[in-house]
Simulated assay, not measured.
Amino acid sequence: MVRWIAGRVLSSAVTLLGIALLIFVAVRLMPGGYADVILGPLASEQQRAEVSARYGLDKPVFLQFFLWLGALLGGDLGISMVTQAPIADELALRLPVTGLLAAMSLTATLLAGVPLGVLSALRGGEGRGGTAGRLVSALGISLPEFVLGSAVIYLFSRFALGLRVGGFASGTGGFGATFQALLLPALVLSVFSVAATARTTRDAVLGVLVEPHIAAAVGRGEPPWHIVRHHVLRNVGIPILTLLGSIVAYLLGGAVIVESLFNVSGLGSYMISGLGRRDFGVVQATVLLTAAAFIVVSLLTELASGWLDPRVSTTRKAAR
């Protein structure tokens, strides 16, 4: 297990290095640069050259990358070219907001997606309940966040439906006000993940229900909900955990759109602002932080899978 964890940490470090290189090159391949955005189209070449030299953008790209990577390894995320403020300080203010938004969406996913999937599977997918469940799941998976979010903003702004749109102010009003302001964005963000979790749970439960040990439990006369709790849910934990690792990545990525729609000051809106202003350091740091969070969650998911099902750990040992 120690060797496996060490190998995963090493592969994660290599993955982060690759992501750092890709995002560093990608932001510099976008049309226009920081000097073009700040100075506008009427600026002279001398003015553009002065701005590029001030921020080191006139150096070769590979040299810029190694300088940024060296500072990153030393714990320095750099300075925003637009605000002249340390990027680490801004991330420290915005990370709890995006983390709370993702945690609320993940909680809604577990509380709604898993029970819906179990109930749909126990009904066998037959009747109006099963058909409605499949239709709702398909609609939730196929509906983009910006379409759903725009519709929700219109409805809750036009009619008094109990939840307030907007009004988010980071660091003011306490946890209760922050939770209330993030509730609607979190629900919008969780629609896809609830639908995907419900469908995955349904398929997993249907696969477990045909196993011989379920037939043996029925033959022993065990109550139906006792069979579900002790035999079915325990065996569907692995596919649900595997899916949740991907859902966390989706939630972090979907937060970019949802935070922009609902004007939430999180990592997503910070990255969008950096992209629009060609603030390279902001985009690089935000993407790298999000990728690191996803890698950590994936590692924890694999460890939890081995704890829930010892066969997973045995398979890893056999592979080594």
Rank of each mutant, 00 (worst) to 15 (best):
G129W: 10
G130Y: 00
T131S: 12
T131P: 06
G133L: 08
G133P: 05
L135W: 14
V136L: 14
V136Y: 07
V136A: 13
S137N: 05
I141R: 00
S142I: 10
S142E: 10
S142H: 06
L143F: 04
E145K: 11
F146T: 09
L148W: 02
L148F: 00
A151D: 02
Y154W: 13
Y154A: 13
L155I: 05
F156I: 04
F156H: 00
F156V: 03
S157R: 12
S157L: 09
R158S: 12
R158E: 15
A160V: 09
A160C: 07
L161W: 05
L163K: 05
V165F: 04
G166S: 15
G167F: 08
G167D: 06
A169F: 07
S170V: 15
S170M: 13
S170Q: 15
G171K: 02
G174N: 06
G174E: 07
T178M: 15
T178P: 05
Q180D: 12
L182C: 07
L183M: 10
P185H: 03
A186L: 08
A186G: 15
A186W: 09
A186C: 10
L187I: 10
L189C: 04
L189W: 03
S190A: 12
S190N: 08
V191W: 07
V191D: 05
V191K: 01
F192M: 13
S193G: 12
S193I: 12
V194Y: 02
A195F: 00
A196M: 13
A196Y: 11
T197H: 06
A198T: 03
A198P: 02
A198C: 03
R199E: 07
R199L: 09
T200P: 10
T201D: 00
R202F: 01
D203H: 14
A204P: 04
A204S: 11
L206G: 04
L206N: 07
L206T: 13
L206K: 04
G207R: 06
G207N: 13
V208D: 02
V208H: 01
L209S: 09
E211R: 15
H213G: 09
H213C: 10
A215M: 09
A216I: 10
A216D: 14
A216V: 11
A216N: 09
A217C: 06
V218R: 15
P223C: 08
P224G: 02
P224V: 08
W225K: 08
W225V: 13
H226K: 12
I227V: 11
I227R: 06
I227W: 06
I227C: 04
R229V: 11
H230L: 10
V232G: 11
L233Y: 13
L233M: 14
V236E: 06
I238N: 15
I238T: 11
P239A: 02
P239Y: 01
I240G: 03
L241R: 04
L241M: 15
T242M: 08
T242I: 08
L243T: 14
S246F: 14
S246A: 12
I247C: 08
V248P: 00
A249Y: 05
A249L: 04
A249C: 06
Y250E: 13
L251M: 01
L251K: 01
L251H: 01
L252S: 01
G253C: 15
G253L: 10
G254S: 03
G254L: 03
V256E: 07
I257M: 13
I257N: 06
V258G: 12
V258L: 14
S260P: 03
F262M: 08
V264L: 05
V264C: 03
S265C: 14
S265I: 14
